[in-house]
């Protein structure tokens, strides 16, 4: 009996082996000779995919608000999806251009209390924060020797137009130190002409270093490791330098968990950009078309 069972199992094993062979033959994959080539091909394809992915991942700098808040307490895939859909719908109505902290913008909003029912403000973007529909940015300017800052919601439907007058970055991620700097560093004329960069150039970084006014300051700038301030050492006492050394946290750049908690993992980002990228591209194409039309139209009006 047991012999018979063993025989049958052997038979089954043989048939399985045969079937496997057969399948291999059917799939027409050569067994030994061309294996190394196949590996190379696979490597190439992954490399290409990575390259493509990197190109898509670059949009995290252009559209930072499409990435959700990394705090796991607030994550929910459905809510994020609905939020992104709403953002795209708003973007189909208004062109929200690419801009960074340090760029100079002109924002026109509809204002029920203004005389002409619209209000235009020009200023330098000193901060950009928030995820999803809560994304916001702050503009700063000096009007009549008085510093003015206006905070705008990026997806506010009362915003009629956002125009980038000068597209550039600064040396720091937040420019709050302009509040304590000399006023000429944050003064911009309201009738400034937009400076158009030739297509394909990378966003220039403005290496200007501002001069701070003497103390008192709004924050302890000396502790923040700022690159865009030139004269910070002039205003410091020995005590401040000692405190700065004591307060330094040089180990934090090695804290991998801290980095991880602050960022969205690359797999999640890929899902998000796969969902959004196409529509964003289409919106950009449409925008380019309208810009071309405008450039074509303007000389005619000048002639007339």
């Amino acid at each position: 009996m047991s012999f018979a069972i063993r025989r049958t199992t052997e038979l089954i094993g043989a048939t399985k082996w045969f079937l496997r062979r057969e399948c291999r033959v059917l799939s027409t994959l050569p067994e030994k000779t061309e294996e190394p080539e196949k590996v190379v091909a696979r490597k190439r394809s992954t490399g290409r995919r990575l390259f493509k992915n990197e190109a898509i991942l670059e949009s995290r700098h252009i559209y930072p608000e499409f990435l959700p808040d990394p705090n796991p307490k607030w994550r929910n895939s459905l809510r994020e999806k609905l939020e992104r859909a709403d953002m795209l719908q708003r973007r189909s109505q208004i062109d929200i251009p690419e801009f960074y902290v340090g760029s100079i913008l002109a924002v026109t909003i509809s204002d029920p209390h203004a005389q002409s029912k619209t209000n235009r403000f020009v200023g330098i973007c000193i901060e950009r924060k928030g995820c999803g529909l809560r994304a916001e940015f702050t503009l700063r300017n000096v009007v009549d020797h008085q510093g003015v800052e206006v905070r705008y919601d990026l997806y506010d439907p009362t915003i009629q137009n956002i125009q980038v007058l000068r597209l550039e970055k600064r040396l720091d991620e937040k420019l709050f130190y302009l509040r304590d700097a000399l006023p000429e560093y944050s003064t911009f004329p309201f009738d400034m002409d937009p400076e158009i960069l030739p297509e394909g150039t990378p966003v220039p970084i403005n290496p200007v270093q501002v001069k701070l006014k003497p103390r008192p300051w709004l924050e302890r700038w000396e502790r923040q490791d700022l690159k865009g301030v030139s004269n910070i050492e002039e205003h410091l006492k020995e005590k401040d330098r000692v405190r700065r050394e004591l307060r330094k946290t040089p180990w934090e750049k090695y804290d991998l968990m801290k980095q991880y908690r602050k960022t969205i993992p690359i797999e999640d980002q890929n899902d998000i950009w796969d969902e959004v990228h196409n529509q964003l591209q289409q919106l950009q194409m449409a925008k380019k078309k309208t810009v071309r039309k405008r450039t074509f139209v303007t000389p005619k009006t000048q002639l007339a």
């Binding site: 719908q89 109505q93 204002d111 029912k117």
Partner: peptide, 13 residues
Amino acid sequence: VHPFADRTLTFEE
């Protein structure tokens, strides 16, 4: 509620 797909809000005089 103002739907996001609607046109930009403007106020008339």
